[in-house]
Amino acid sequence: MTAQVERELETETEELTVREAIRQALREELERDEDVFLIGEDIGEFGGVLEVTGDLYEEFGDERIKDTPISEAGFTGAATGAAATGTRPVVELMFSDFSGVAMEQIMNQMAKMRYMFGGKAEMPVTVRTTEGGGMGAASQHSGTVHTWMAHFPGLKAVAPGTAAAAKGLTKAAIRSNDPVFVFENKMIYEQTGQVPTDEDYTAPIGEAAIEREGDDVTVVATQRLVGESLQTAESIADEFGLEVEVIDPRSLYPLDTETIVESVRKTGRLIVADESPLSYGTHAEIVARVQEEAFFSLDAPIQRVGTPDTHMPFSPPLENEVLPDGDDVRAAIERIS
């Protein structure tokens, strides 16, 4: 168990949904720092299309909860310019699929400005966006694109799998002087969990959380697959007496390689479960790091669970076919145990 998780558990907690945890993070940071403002489509009076910003508009007004035109390149670029000039914007990109529309400003301005200028620009901008299938939202509203941002130099990318991580990472992202993308899986907004109430609680970017300890198999799972892997771990323990260790990396870039590698040294077996498409992705990065650091600790081939390189189809039977879930994690464990 990492020091961070221990610290978290020592503090007072309350039960919140992921959605409530993120909103609480936003509220606390808006209260804490006057430079913070939110900017995005329908986040004001409307409360956000997936109701994350909710009633913040009533509390903070339209100066700090800014509704934008449907203009992702424009407002993402404006947030980039604003971040370089003394404020701390938090962008909501309604669906991560829409980041394509804003990609120029993200990759060539937001990500590169500090570096190109020799460190003479701060870029304290947070981009929150939703990912994931399971809602019948079809291919342009269900994508999981976090690999792009985690891959692109100059951006940090986090993807919480629990309510505590959702709050802690959102707060850490806002406080960071670097651009941080927070990828929220839309299927877990209603998932509940214990969340520290301390207003100074953050989940440091670059630190994984061990959500369940076990000696037999390591499952590195992200977002929705954290909860599903935990359920799978329980049933596997009941059925086979195997103890599965479940790690939520929480931060995709930087990645807490050490926590994952230590676990694999202990278990000798690794499953990487992430909803992004399988090829050239997040899974591959974790696998590569583990083989670099713990090649001789591996007792079995590493398994990947993800979306098999398709877009997210609309019809429920089709969506169910390609969407990775706890059963896929179970099958992977069974293959190597």
């Binding site: 390149a73 971040a83 000039t85 120029e104």
Partner: peptide, 18 residues
Amino acid sequence: IVGAGPPLATGAALSIDY
């Protein structure tokens, strides 16, 4: 990047206004 400046200046103006 041709055309990248206007969103950035608009953002600086947003900071100024804010």
